[in-house]
Amino acid sequence: MPNLPVPVVTIGLLLLSNVFMTFAWYGHLKFKAAPLVTVILIYWGIAFFEYLLQVPANRIGHGYFSAAELKTIQEVITLSVFAVFSVLYLREPLMWNHLVGFALIAAGAFFVFHRWS
């Protein structure tokens, strides 16, 4: 397997980790009748897989990206994954104000990554 560029590996791992994270944090909302202790244990187990991907992503990416840039990438990916999850899995619509809020966060990412002279 050829060596992939650090940004590709980092962003790929963060994307995959966010899929697990989103299910761990919000997937249980469809199962409100399940006992809370059961839900906590099951979804904590899902979160374990998120950490198996997220920790190496940050390890690999740090140095190429600053910690602030890694966190910004994480947040943009988190919102993107959550938006898809919310619509497709939870069947909750995204409203215009959600999209405006997400756009403002994306604008913040511009300021984190822009090279100021």
Rank of each mutant, 00 (worst) to 15 (best):
L14K: 08
S66V: 09
G101L: 14
Y43V: 04
Y26I: 04
I42F: 08
S66A: 14
G12I: 11
L99M: 12
F111Q: 10
E69R: 02
L14D: 03
I11Q: 02
L29P: 09
E92C: 09
R59H: 14
V39L: 05
I40M: 13
L41V: 13
I105A: 06
A57P: 11
V55S: 05
G45E: 13
L52C: 15
V39G: 00
V100N: 08
E92H: 11
I105H: 10
N18P: 00
Q54S: 13
G12W: 09
V19R: 00
P56K: 01
A67Q: 07
L15P: 01
P93G: 05
H114D: 14
E92G: 12
F20S: 03
V112S: 01
H98S: 04
Q74C: 04
A103Y: 06
F102T: 07
F113Y: 05
V39E: 00
V87Y: 11
A47R: 00
H98N: 11
G63C: 00
A109I: 08
T38I: 10
L104T: 13
V112H: 04
N97P: 12
H98K: 10
L53P: 01
N58C: 10
L53R: 01
F111R: 06
N58V: 07
V112N: 02
Q74L: 06
L104E: 13
F31K: 10
A57G: 05
Y64K: 07
V39R: 00
A83P: 02
I105T: 10
F113R: 07
S80I: 08
V84P: 14
T10I: 02
V6W: 05
A33W: 10
F82R: 05
F102S: 05
G27R: 05
V55Q: 08
F111M: 11
F110K: 14
W96A: 15
N58R: 09
K30E: 12
P56F: 03
Y89G: 08
F48E: 02
G108L: 03
W96P: 11
L15H: 06
N3Q: 14
V9E: 09
I40H: 07
Y51N: 15
K30L: 10
H114V: 14
I11D: 02
F23R: 01
S66F: 10
S17N: 02
G45P: 04
I60T: 14
V87E: 03
H98D: 03
A57K: 09
V8A: 05
P35G: 14
L13S: 01
L13D: 06
L16G: 04
Y43R: 02
F85D: 02
G63W: 04
P5W: 07
L29Q: 14
T78K: 05
G101E: 12
G12N: 05
F23C: 00
